[in-house]
Simulated assay, not measured.
Amino acid sequence: MSDTALPPVTELTKLQIDTVALWHQEEISNPYEGFMALVCQQHEYNYRLWHQEDIARSPTADDQQIATVKRAIDKLNQQRNDMIEKLDDAITERLTAAGVTPANDAPINTETSGSAIDRLSIMSLRLYHYAEQLEREDAGSDHVQKVQDRIALCQQQHSDLSRSLQDLIDDIFAGRKRHKTYRQMKMYNDPSLNPAIYNA
């Protein structure tokens, strides 16, 4: 693979699936380089966000715990979205280095590659935690069947999105589609834009 090419989507999704399982057993780490390191970092924010969201919904969490978790969720969500933009910026850099010029009539996809990588990250988390549900000793047959049905659907959606993302990347690097970073410009964490902060 050249320095300007992206890893195959199968490698990206393998990273996400493997690290979800690994991080449930040991400390979070990022041994990757280049674009894969960015994918892993973005995935880590989703991993941490997932587990903070679980805590926020615990019926035993008191007000102080919920407030602490809510602030953690806000920060992680900002970091997650910042990393989506960094993934797309990294793709732009590689397209420039490769000298790719899109056709004049090349369309822009409704979703960026970085956003699709983010969705695949969340799907890998969903698949892992649904699989955990099958191991519950207190789960009845109806629960097991529901989980199995949802796992099958998640796997199909994961496969569909993986294939669509690979098609998109191929089209972008062939100049058949135009690539841009979607700037999300979130306001709630910016003290100069959130009135609840600057009016405090």
Rank of each mutant, 00 (worst) to 15 (best):
Q52N: 04
Q65L: 09
I55P: 02
I66W: 01
E27P: 11
S29T: 11
Y47Q: 04
H43G: 06
W50R: 13
F35H: 03
I28H: 05
M36K: 02
Y32N: 02
W50D: 09
I55V: 14
V39K: 10
E53Y: 05
E27W: 08
Q41D: 10
I66D: 00
D54H: 08
H43Y: 09
D63K: 15
W50T: 10
G34D: 00
D62I: 08
Q41M: 14
P59I: 05
L49P: 06
W50P: 08
D62V: 07
Y45T: 07
Q64L: 11
S29P: 02
P31I: 00
F35K: 02
P59N: 05
R57P: 03
Y45G: 02
Q41T: 15
Y32L: 02
A56Y: 14
L38Q: 11
Q42S: 15
N30W: 09
V39I: 14
E27Y: 11
Q41Y: 13
A61N: 04
I66T: 01
N30Q: 12
I55G: 03
R57H: 13
A61Y: 05
G34I: 00
P31F: 01
E44M: 14
T60R: 12
T60S: 11
I66F: 01
N46H: 09
C40Y: 00
A61K: 04
A56Q: 13
S29G: 04
E27R: 11
I28R: 08
D63E: 15
Y45I: 03
E44D: 08
Q52T: 03
E44K: 14
Q64A: 11
A56P: 14
Y45C: 03
W50G: 04
Y45W: 12
W50N: 10
Y45N: 07
R48Q: 14
S58Y: 02
D62Q: 06
A37Y: 06
D63S: 15
M36H: 02
V39W: 13
Y32F: 13
Q65V: 10
L38I: 13
P31Y: 01
Y32S: 02
D63P: 13
E44S: 13
D54M: 12
C40G: 00
P59F: 06
H51L: 05
L49V: 05
I55D: 08
Y47S: 04
I55C: 06
A56C: 12
D54E: 15
W50S: 06
L49F: 13
N46A: 03
H51W: 10
A56G: 11
H43T: 06
A61C: 05
Q64V: 11
R48F: 08
I55E: 12
Y45D: 05
I66K: 06
A61V: 05
D63Y: 15
Y45F: 15
E53P: 03
E53R: 09
E44I: 15
Y32V: 00
Q65S: 04
N30D: 14
S58T: 01
L38W: 12
Q65I: 06
I66V: 05
E27M: 13
P31G: 00
H43S: 07
C40P: 00
N30R: 05
